[in-house]
Nucleic acid binder design. Structure first.
Lengths: 213, 213
DNA sequence: TCGTGAATGTAAGCATCGATTACATAATTG
DNA sequence: CAATTATGTAATCGATGCTTACATTCACGA
């Protein structure tokens, strides 16, 4: 019983079975994406990093896209956790302040995890229909922003604006900033990396003060 | 003299030399991108469409990236032409109106040529340093928006805003809308294709009226 | 006019990648 | 302990980017 365990734990004996190859492949893919962008993720390289043959991953993922789908779900979970944490217990601060906190948490994560954000936000890298959690979390975030905007309007904190158009504009602003970061618009435009988050915050302030009464 | 010409024009005689393979490859690549996105562009398929061997393109482009760079320059030229046309002779309409016209022309082209817009806007698909025209046109557009914003401020049409932050917010808004279209956020969110441009215009209006006095 | 060098194409082949198939080994379970 | 299932390897396929060696055509000057 303990014998077989001892045998494998002995020095550099590589067990035929990996243990948790699925998890290792997702982690390797996340690392590859972080290093060279989503396109740098290859099944073979992930297998290489997990110390396994090129065909092994296909026992756990039917295709490269299936691996990316799992990666997207993992990334989306981390993304959502950060946003939830930022908004926890802030209800008393008012909807406009919460809207800004939501935007800042969103941007903060997107700026610091550009490749992972790109994977979940584009849908080009994974099967959107298969990754139900991604869609759900996204819908939740959108619904939350709608709610906060409606609250702000109901409590008379907004100038007379079209709520729907305003919500889309806000989403587009935040998404645009995240995308500009991914697409290297900021360095090309002379913005230092450490300034990016601050500049994004200022842009968000411009928008919010533009709709606030 | 005319003999050789006649010989080749006769029926289905394929000349050894293409005539303008470079041009044909760029056109094929543009078509491939439009059909399946930038990642659908392959050197071999472009060669296939031009009726030429897989190695031939490398006489004109050192790499796939070099082909994409030429594609980007072509696309950027079309993009800029559309914007210039939209702004021609509109100086009398005032800076804020021109700002909106600029944004709408930008969005219009981006929405109708998503793949080509993605190529020029991301820099992941081509060598940004080699495509000087792309950088220059982009810088011009940015400079123009700065100018218009400064004019609006100087003539007292703006609320008291941070001009730099406002300009970045405006860019991010427009870029975000274009990107949401590319990344299929709109259909996923139940927005009909024919409504996209109208919704984008409304979002732009929200922003501009938010900064206007 | 011609012939020679440059330009431009073909053919064949390399490495990498995603993916499949047949087979081998370990883990689990009755 | 035996048999079934899960999970790995090995070998292979077709597509791709890219290179090299060779073939053909074009353009220009003697």
């Amino acid at each position: 019983m303990a014998k077989s365990v001892k045998k494998r734990s002995r020095a550099a004996v590589i067990p035929y079975h990996h243990g948790d190859l699925r998890r290792a492949l997702i982690d390797a893919a996340l690392a590859l994406a972080a290093e060279g962008g989503p396109s740098a993720v290859s099944v073979r390289e992930a297998a290489r990093r997990a110390g396994v043959s090129p065909g092994a991953p296909f026992r756990h993922f039917d295709s490269r896209e299936a691996l990316m789908t799992a990666v997207a779900e993992e990334a989306q979970q981390r993304f959502r956790a950060e946003i939830d944490a930022a908004l926890a217990g802030t209800a008393a601060e008012g909807p406009l302040r919460q809207l800004k906190l939501l935007g800042m948490a969103y941007l903060r994560w997107a700026m610091r995890n550009p490749a992972h954000f790109e994977i979940i936000s584009t849908g080009r890298w994974f099967d959107h229909d298969a990754a139900v959690a991604v869609s759900r979390d996204n819908a939740d975030a959108i619904a939350l922003s709608e709610q906060l905007l409606a609250q702000a309007a109901a409590s008379g904190q907004l100038r007379p604006v079209d709520l729907k158009a305003t919500q889309i504009a806000g989403r587009a602003l935040v998404y645009g900033l995240a995308r500009m970061n991914i697409d290297r618009h900021f360095p090309r435009w002379g913005v230092q990396p450490e300034q990016v988050e601050r500049i994004a915050e200022q842009a968000l302030d411009v928008f919010i003060s533009g709709i606030a009464k």
